[in-house]
């Protein structure tokens, strides 16, 4: 079984798990983790294919994606902390005031 297939399998399952986490879990922190998981999964695929095609540009992209993911985590954490401190708890089902 060649490496590419393994990589795709890994990426796919990691991404799917991340997606499932974001969609189905209610704790905001967990959702954030799912988000990060998705981006990490993509990175796996990109790194592999960068090596396959001998392309340095794609590796640069990976670096940038890591940076972006980090920034996203910062923003997400800031927001989650705020919500926790506001006393309503960090649970997605609480955030339903805006609707319709």
């Amino acid at each position: 079984m060649n490496l590419t297939a393994v990589v795709w399998a890994t990426t796919g399952s990691l991404f799917a798990i991340g997606l499932a986490v974001v969609t189905f879990r209610r704790q905001l922190l967990a959702m954030l983790l799912g988000l990060e998981l998705m981006l990490a999964a993509v990175n796996v695929a990109l790194v592999h294919h960068a090596g396959l095609f001998d392309d340095a540009e794609a590796l640069a992209v990976v670096a940038l994606v890591i940076a972006v993911a980090a920034a996203e985590a910062v923003v997400g954490l800031a927001l989650i902390l705020r919500v926790r401190r506001s006393g309503r708890g960090a649970d997605a089902s609480v955030l339903t005031e805006l609707r319709g």
């Binding site: 997606l19 974001v22 969609t23 189905f24 209610r26 959702m31 997605a92 089902s93 955030l95 339903t96 005031e97 805006l98 609707r99 319709g100």
Partner: peptide, 16 residues
Amino acid sequence: ASSAQGRVNDYLWWML
């Protein structure tokens, strides 16, 4: 509108 209960998870569901 009634399908939009305001839960973010639902939003993601729709997106997916």
